[in-house]
Amino acid sequence: MRYAQLNLGIWGADEGNYKETVAVGNQAKEAAESLDLPVHWNGQSEYRPMILLKHFRD
């Protein structure tokens, strides 16, 4: 089984500092998970959250 992946670029507008960027990442993660889409992200602003969009059968 394979997945389509969506890597999200996150940035905490206006300041763009660590706390704001992590808050944006958490909001994106929560929104995706509320739609039953798995998210891989370590919670750090230096890394992009990756959403697994769909299962594909070979």
Rank of each mutant, 00 (worst) to 15 (best):
M1W: 11
M1F: 09
R2C: 12
R2A: 15
Y3I: 09
Y3T: 07
Y3V: 06
Y3L: 03
A4P: 00
A4M: 10
A4L: 08
Q5V: 05
Q5W: 07
Q5E: 14
Q5N: 05
N7S: 07
N7C: 02
N7P: 03
N7H: 00
N7I: 03
L8C: 15
G9V: 02
I10G: 04
I10H: 01
W11P: 04
G12D: 10
G12N: 12
G12Y: 11
G12C: 00
A13C: 10
A13G: 11
A13E: 13
D14A: 14
E15S: 10
G16E: 04
N17V: 03
N17R: 12
Y18C: 12
Y18V: 13
Y18E: 15
Y18T: 13
K19A: 15
K19L: 15
K19P: 11
E20V: 05
T21Q: 11
T21L: 08
T21C: 14
V22R: 13
V22N: 12
V22Q: 12
A23K: 14
A23I: 10
A23Q: 10
A23V: 08
V24C: 06
G25P: 06
G25I: 03
G25S: 09
G25Y: 00
N26F: 05
N26I: 05
N26Y: 09
Q27A: 15
Q27K: 10
Q27Y: 02
A28C: 15
A28I: 12
A28E: 04
A28T: 09
A28R: 06
E30H: 01
E30Q: 11
E30W: 04
A31P: 04
A31C: 00
A31G: 01
A32Y: 06
S34H: 12
S34A: 13
L35Y: 01
D36Q: 07
D36A: 15
D36M: 08
L37D: 05
L37P: 01
L37G: 01
L37S: 06
L37C: 01
P38G: 05
P38I: 02
P38K: 08
V39K: 03
V39M: 07
V39H: 00
V39T: 06
V39I: 02
H40N: 01
W41F: 09
W41R: 09
W41Q: 00
W41S: 02
N42Y: 07
N42L: 13
N42E: 09
S45N: 10
S45C: 12
S45L: 02
Y47N: 14
Y47K: 08
R48Y: 00
R48W: 04
R48C: 07
R48S: 00
P49F: 00
P49N: 07
P49M: 03
M50R: 14
M50F: 05
M50N: 12
M50H: 03
M50C: 13
M50S: 00
M50P: 02
M50K: 12
I51C: 03
I51V: 15
L52D: 01
L52R: 09
L53C: 08
L53E: 06
L53W: 02
L53M: 04
L53G: 10
K54F: 00
K54E: 15
H55Y: 01
F56I: 11
F56C: 08
F56E: 03
F56P: 06
R57G: 02
R57M: 01
D58L: 02
D58N: 15
D58S: 08
